[in-house]
Design a protein around this nucleic acid. Structure first.
Length: 917
RNA sequence: GCGGAUAUGGCGUAAUUGGUAGCCGCGCCAGACUUAGGAUCUGGUGUUGAAAGACGUGUAGGUUCGAGUCCUAUUAUCCGCACCA
């Protein structure tokens, strides 16, 4: 009987659905395990063969853990709000809710065919009001909180108000946008709007006038992680810097905890490193430089306090708030012009022209607080407004950017650290002895930095300071398809809706583009008002809905809370998270922030959301090419194309097999190739190939539906794992799939003969067969734990090769369970064929019995001077001395040592014997 | 520029973690069967050599009885960050 995967898979998928076999509930009698996939954005293109890679890996792990006796939470949902659905809506007028619904249905049907063990009862969709109610809830909680640096956690804003009432800002150490200082009396004097303005400075969700990434083409602002090289990540449109009033999340308040938390996580070093870089902690000093002829002091940040005697000028960012004020009357016009010019340049231009030095002199001077030397102050856009204080002390001798600047404008370059030749280039290294530096002279750089930091604090010039590269997350999007803000305005003062009024539902609109006035689409909704007051017009960004979805899965139908304490305390956090590395600086930062915030407030019991994280690699496309002889309809095979003048054309990979073109299929592929002629080699047309991104335009998209149709879900699952290490990117190549499919057929053939008779018998297995089985159990278990699925597939193949035509029940039954995480449908069918009534999903995973692995003898490779010479079989368990004596007595050893007594004999028990002469 | 990763047959990969390099699969070669298929089965397949053997894990050194694995330098590819003071 043939292995009829189609029938088997259809049958069991239906049965599992009917039985609700993957439903899970809180069950304190069993240990829990939480396996999560990064939920997909349901795009219109559907899934290609690369998408399920991570889902298959996590499904295997889920099934494995379940068979090992864990109560496994393994849910799936959709990240359904976002730009593409909306862009599509603008073009076609179709409501995003409609297209999203269609796309979800398609995704679901594609996923269902692969046999995943999700508990669909727990599905979440970020665009569902019952879901985004809790996104809005979290936002309001953030609005209602501030970060107390003393307690090192988020606290209710009412606490802060109480402190202001009692003693003003005295003794308050809180994360804020601008440092503030006022007394209790002053606070008491303030009106409501003024107080709110103060509180906005502290709230964790707050509104501020800041520089933002504005993308004119998308008509919205974007967060830093959504911008790459000055272009929007979605669509690749130019992005410019603009000052706008926006909602932000005070992620920076958590910078230190986000950094420290990484150490405890089982994430790949590279991913942790990406997050560390993104957070970008640097330690140094804040210092104040008095301005000449004024009592103001310019604040700067530096990591190289030791080089202060080498300062020859200062630079402000053109956006610095003092930029214009500092300008002397003679320089004012030039300064104004420079600021204007900088504003006009897009982020992209600034990046492209990083080599070009542009600047203007303000006419003002500062004094070096250590030696009183006068230092000219310049503006230049190489200093960024958003980092540090937007102002620097320039040390051209030891900073390459300052050096270039000084050279360009003919400023002094004073070396203060020995080691380089500052005439040629700056010496940036943090090593060497200090020179020309008064009390620092003679010290090593590292000592000098410490000494200087002390001195700065003693003299009251500044203080030690830690700076982060991480910015607060811009949280508004001037778009339609996102969560509405539960906020309304009275006289431009923001007021939150009450929790009872959530969800604030997204109203229907007809036109999804921005209004003529450039306002967000919600401006078209006439009654977009609360109690007569206007509601916020922008919506939340994509990362809002994905920041806490893993918590919602724990208790998805709860209308009283995001997650009940009972559910949260049982499921705690995600034990294994599988997804792409592309979320390193976005979702994975925001989620950690969001979770820490909810942790501070006591809503969740774990501080980190994702304990272990595995990044599956990307599956690229493997494109095929044909070579048309220019000006003809003749196609020349790869090996012969050098003899012709050819043009390379992408050809559909689905009509190529092992790089051999199916000629008839090619003629039928497109009308212009109907009469194609071929120049063959060895009667075949060999195609060229290349690894490219999997995309329609390259004709290299492979649809999982097609593979399932042709080979079955179990083959697809196993082959995707066999392709290579999970974390590595690799091209999809359908060619190799036969090997895996053949393996499954061979498993089938252990059970049934050609006529459909069951071959399984109750004969006792031999020692060799048991050894093979248990070796495989050991290997497969280890490999699953290590996510080394490709080698576990190999182990299965080796196992079957070694077993030959063995059809003994005692061997096959455990093997079927062992295979179940990989090939659930086939295993289920065979499990029932063996007479089991219950599902294979409820079996227990086979355990390795080491007794079967014990060897009675071992074949030792014997090397002489490191070179392998012969092999000697010896019983296991004899002493090193006995082995040595046995080997030395061996005829072969005599031959290779020439009868000489060896200098040394090295015996590695169970491994190798080396004779050194 | 800074940081991270990778490099092994024609291809995807493996190597008990310092111990017989190339398991498993694809492809290729040969054979068997055959209702001639892109089926199935068996054997072979790193290079070189008639063979014994020699050579062989990006390159060059080093440590070691022994190195794909450890150390130093170097090259290439990929990824992240990037006027971050």
């Amino acid at each position: 009987m043939e292995y009829n995967f189609k029938e088997i898979e259809g049958k069991w998928q239906a049965a599992w659905r009917e039985q609700g076999i993957y439903r899970v509930e809180v069950d304190p009698s069993k240990p829990k395990f939480y396996v999560l996939d990064m939920f997909p954005y349901p795009s219109g293109a559907g899934l290609h063969v690369g998408h399920p890679l991570g889902y298959i890996a996590s499904d295997i792990y889920t099934r494995y853990k379940r068979l090992c006796g864990f109560n496994v939470l393994h849910p799936m949902g959709y990240d359904a709000f976002g730009l593409p659905a909306e862009q599509y809506a603008i073009q076609t007028g179709q409501h995003p809710a409609v297209t999203t619904e269609e796309n979800i249905a398609r995704y679901r049907s594609q996923m269902d065919k692969i046999g995943f063990s999700y508990d669909w009862n727990r599905e979440v969709r970020t665009c569902d009001p019952e879901y985004y109610k809790w996104t809005q809830w979290a936002f309001l909680k953030m609005f209602d909180s501030y970060y107390c640096n003393t307690a090192d956690k988020a606290l209710p804003i009412s606490d802060l108000v109480a402190r202001f009432e009692k003693s003003g800002t005295e003794g308050v150490d809180a994360a804020c946008t601008e440092p503030m200082s006022f007394t209790a009396a002053e606070w008491a004097e303030m009106n409501e709007a003024e107080r709110e303005a103060v509180l906005q400075n502290y709230r964790l969700a707050f509104r501020a006038d800041t520089m933002v990434n504005w993308c004119p083409a998308l008509g919205t602002v974007l967060a830093n992680d959504e911008v790459k090289d000055g272009l929007s990540e979605r669509g690749g449109h130019p992005v410019e810097q603009r000052r706008m009033k926006q909602w932000l999340l005070r992620v920076t308040a958590y910078a230190q905890r986000l950094l420290e938390g990484l150490d405890k996580l089982e994430w790949s070093e590279s991913l942790k490193e990406i997050q560390r870089n993104w957070i970008g902690r640097s330690t140094g000093a804040q210092m104040f430089f008095p301005i000449k002829g004024s009592d103001r002091k310019l604040e700067i940040f530096t990591t190289r306090a030791d080089t202060v005697f080498g300062v020859t000028f200062m630079v402000l960012a053109p956006e610095h708030e003092w930029a214009l004020e500092l300008a002397t009357p003679e320089q004012r016009a030039a300064v104004e012009e420079y600021i204007e010019q900088t504003k006009k340049r897009s982020e992209r231009e600034r990046i492209a022209e990083t080599k070009r030095v542009t600047s203007v002199f303000t006419g003002a001077y500062a004094c070096n607080p250590f030696n009183g030397k006068e230092i000219p102050i310049y503006l230049s856009d190489y200093v960024l407004a958003g980092y540090g204080t937007g102002a620097i002390m320039a040390v051209p001798a030891h900073d390459s950017r300052d050096w270039a600047f000084a050279r360009h404008f003919g400023l002094d370059i004073i070396p203060v650290v020995e080691g380089g030749d500052v005439e040629v280039e700056s010496y940036d290294a943090k090593s060497g002895k200090l020179i020309n530096s008064e009390f620092l002279t003679g010290l090593d750089v590292k000592e000098a930095i410490e000494r200087m930091l002390d001195e700065v604090e003693v003299r009251g010039i500044g203080a030690r300071k830690v700076n982060y590269r991480l910015r607060d997350a811009i949280f508004s999007r001037q778009r339609y398809w996102g969560e509405p803000f539960p906020v309304y305005y009275k006289d431009d003062v923001a007021y939150p809706l009450s929790m009872e009024e959530l969800p604030l539902c997204l109203p229907a609109v007809k036109d999804f583009g921005p209004t003529e006035q450039g306002e967000p689409p919600l401006a078209r909704v006439e009654d977009w008002k609360y109690d007569g007051y206007p509601l916020e017009l922008s919506t939340m960004p994509g990362f809002a809905g994905s920041s806490a979805y893993y918590l919602r899965y724990m208790d998805p139908h709860n209308s009283e809370a995001l997650v009940s304490p009972e559910a949260n305390q049982y499921w705690r956090n995600v034990d294994l998270y599988v997804g792409g590395i592309e979320h390193a600086t976005g979702h994975l930062i925001y989620s950690r922030f969001w979770n820490k915030f909810l942790f501070d407030l006591g809503y969740v019991c774990e501080e980190e959301p994702f304990k272990k994280l595995v990044n599956q690699g990307m599956i690229q496309g493997r494109s095929n090419f044909v070579y048309r002889v220019v000006g003809t309809n003749k196609f020349v095979s790869l090996g012969l194309r050098d003899n012709y003048d050819t043009q390379e054309i992408h050809v559909d990979v689905n009509i190529v097999r092992n790089d051999v073109l199916d000629l008839d299929a090619f003629r039928a592929w497109r009308p212009e190739f109907k009469d194609a002629e071929f120049i063959l080699e060895d009667d075949k047309y060999i195609c060229g190939w290349a690894v490219e991104k999997m995309s329609k335009s390259m004709y290299n998209v492979v649809n999982p539906d097609y593979i399932v149709e042709r080979y079955g879900a179990d083959t697809l699952r196993m082959y995707e794992m066999f392709l290579g290490p999970l974390e590595q990117s690799k091209p999809w190549d359908t060619n190799g799939i036969d090997g895996v499919h053949k393996f499954l057929r061979r498993v089938w053939n252990r059970f049934y003969d050609r006529d459909g008779n069951l071959l399984v018998n109750d004969e006792k297995p031999t020692a060799a067969e048991l050894k093979t089985l248990h070796k495989t159990i050991k290997k497969v278990r280890e490999d699953i734990e290590n996510f080394s699925y490709n080698t576990s597939v190999s182990a299965f193949m080796i196992c079957l090769n070694e077993l030959g035509d063995c059809s003994k029940r005692e061997i096959l039954e455990p093997l079927v369970v062992l295979l179940a995480p990989f090939t659930p449908h086939l295993s289920e069918e065979l499990w029932h064929a063996l007479g089991n009534e219950s599902s294979v999903c409820t079996a227990s995973y086979p355990e390795c019995n080491p007794d079967y692995l014990v060897e009675s003898s071992f074949e030792y490779p014997v090397s002489v001077n490191g070179k392998l010479r012969f092999k000697k079989t010896l019983p296991v368990g004899i002493s090193k001395e006995e082995i040595e004596a046995a080997v030395l007595a061996d005829e072969m050893a005599q031959k290779y040592t020439g009868g000489n007594t060896p200098k040394k004999v090295i015996v590695v028990p169970g491994k190798i014997i080396n004779i050194v002469i």
